[in-house]
Write a protein that binds this DNA or RNA. Sequence first.
DNA 1: CCTAATGTCTCTAGCAACTATAGCTTCAAG
DNA 2: CTTGAAGCTATAGTTGCTAGAGACATTAGG
Lengths: 141, 141
Amino acid sequence: MLTIGKLAQETGVKVPTIRYYEQIGLLPVPGRSVGNQRLYGAEQLDRLRFVRHARDLGFPLEAIRDLLSLSDRPEQPCVAADGIARAQLIAVRARLARLRALESELERMVAQCAHGTIRDCRVIEVLGDHAQCGHDHAGAA
Amino acid sequence: MLTIGKLAQETGVKVPTIRYYEQIGLLPVPGRSVGNQRLYGAEQLDRLRFVRHARDLGFPLEAIRDLLSLSDRPEQPCVAADGIARAQLIAVRARLARLRALESELERMVAQCAHGTIRDCRVIEVLGDHAQCGHDHAGAA
DNA sequence: CCTAATGTCTCTAGCAACTATAGCTTCAAG
DNA sequence: CTTGAAGCTATAGTTGCTAGAGACATTAGG
């Protein structure tokens, strides 16, 4: 059995975060020692590792909650889990596309900086006038 | 003079967000009509467009606050503004690198899905065992 | 066995950057 | 003159944690 601190070490999830996950029902309420300290077994360790890994992959907690409840029913078809992963992939790709556009605009801004005064600063100028952008990152909204 | 609604239309920033920006001191307190409604002029419009554009580029509000105060002193050298933009570029590149790694792992997860049951689901399996990842996105921590 | 240093406990509040709700007043059109 | 949209203030909620206060538990050293 692991204390919360050991569990934190094993998984790389910070102690307050573990308690937070318990609080929002992502982790089940663990047993307690005589002195009222949380004690975790191997199952909890696996579960938290799962959560950690999914968070690293950018899954929102709600999606992780769904994935966990799926993994509790191993006989079910895997379509739902696949769907969640696909949705996450789409979200990641959208963020990537957006970030790539931002990168190129920032590169232009920085490259054109002549190191003069603010008055002539491309950075400020470009930010003040969207029309000077190469592309349409702002969209219409 | 524009009402807050018109200003929102012009800039694409939502009405509550404009009030929020005022509240946190990012926009100056505007004049009011006889009936106590906010009225904005061209200067405010420009300022909010600047904020909007910078937000679109992912600058945090604190950085925008700095950029705005810089742009109020056009005689100053532009080094500071350039630095803020460079920092933002570095941050964007870091996020890009991370997202690219996630994209490839998610692609692998989804591609390997055999559409069987949860028991054999790669998505769940990979999430449960970090060792199955191609790379090291989780880091040590 | 005692003490000191951690570790853990609960609870509350804070972060970014908004978004939503409630309950009111004001404005513009018909 | 009435009605509906738009505006006002103030508070609370969102996501995913993080930080603090003040009290109890455990462990290592003397």
